[in-house]
């Protein structure tokens, strides 16, 4: 498969020297994100996130299935991240690259292992029936900082998603179609966001947020911190690379918290806006219970 184009030596030096003078090619501050845009689809659970030229589409879906035998009280929750050649011809189907594995592990740790979605609430009949919630992440265009955009899209899609309503009567489980009963939101516990720092320079002394594709190719190390607005870290991943001073990492985590709070506020606003748009009749009361936590 064709390889990615690498930035030329001149390009590398230009970017690096500019960074040393606190300048970025697109004129941003070092801790400034590119404009983040979120649009929801007509259906529930579709979130389209644009971060500069990076674009990620996440779609949540649910179906009733049999729970795993070793976890009869839990529903199933999977995040599928397959990078198609649409992202870049360097990606091949059915052959995970390092980017893909790391992305999928990060989303897994950030959203799934941090218990953002209450999987116990997905159980319908212990050991027999449960919901299987699946989020498909489609990367339409990759211009750096895939992780932050993908994580935001996944969280947005899940919070926007409604699964069909069910009822249990005398041991009989009924799943209602959307025409019969309005679908219900998932039981969502907290919203984690990924914030990725990229480090530059021989000592990793320059740190910046939301690196573009060119910057990502030049960086010497990166550190992804996932946290929610309550200041709970869900995951930190600095997987090798040039060593960075411990104190600098602590400072990065502090800035990351303020960014996570910004993301959280933005997402809450967008969700409220969407709810208002969709609100027909007496639905509002049911939907507004969602944002309590």
């Amino acid at each position: 498969m064709p390889r990615e184009v690498e930035p030329s030596l001149n390009e590398k030096q230009f970017v690096l020297q500019a960074l040393q003078e606190n300048l970025r090619l697109d004129g941003r501050e070092i801790d400034q994100y590119r404009p983040l845009e979120l649009t929801f689809g007509d259906q529930y659970g579709v979130a389209d996130v644009t971060l500069g030229k990076t674009r990620v589409l996440a779609k949540a879906s649910a179906e009733v299935t049999v729970p795993y035998t070793d976890r009869p009280l839990d529903g199933i929750f999977t995040i599928a991240t397959e990078l198609s050649p649409m992202t870049s011809p360097a990606f091949e189907l059915n052959r995970p690259t390092e980017t893909e594995v790391l992305l999928s592990r990060l989303l897994e740790k950030t959203v799934r292992r941090s218990n953002a979605l209450d999987t116990e609430s997905l159980c319908l009949i212990a050991g027999q029936k449960c919901w299987s919630v699946r989020v498909d992440v489609h990367v339409l265009s990759h211009d750096g900082n895939l992780i932050d955009a993908a994580c935001f899209a996944v969280v947005a899609a899940l919070r926007h998603f409604r699964k069909p309503d069910t009822s249990m009567e005398g041991g009989v489980l009924t799943v209602y179609t959307p025409a019969e009963r309005e679908p219900v939101p998932l039981s969502w516990l907290h919203s984690p966001f990924c914030i990725t720092w990229s480090f530059f320079g021989d000592q990793g002394e320059i740190a910046l947020l939301d690196a573009t594709w060119v910057e990502e190719q030049i960086r010497v190390a990166s550190c992804t911190i996932s946290l929610n607005r309550h200041g709970e870290i869900c995951q930190i991943a600095k997987l090798g690379g040039t060593p960075v001073d411990a104190v600098a990492l602590l400072q990065c985590s502090g800035v990351a918290l303020t960014k996570a709070k910004e993301f959280s506020t933005y997402l809450d606003g967008k969700l409220a806006e969407d709810t208002k748009k969709r609100n027909k009749g007496g639905l509002l009361a049911e939907l507004s219970a969602e944002n309590d936590r």
Partner: peptide
């Protein structure tokens, strides 16, 4: 993981939920 006996961190991996205030103590 640190480089030699410096304070410079090569790898830092946290996989559990923890308050940000505890990070400093743990890292030290």
């Amino acid at each position: 993981a640190t480089m030699g006996d410096s304070d410079r961190v090569v790898a830092l991996v946290c996989e559990s939920r923890v308050q940000i205030s505890r990070l400093e103590g743990m890292l030290v």
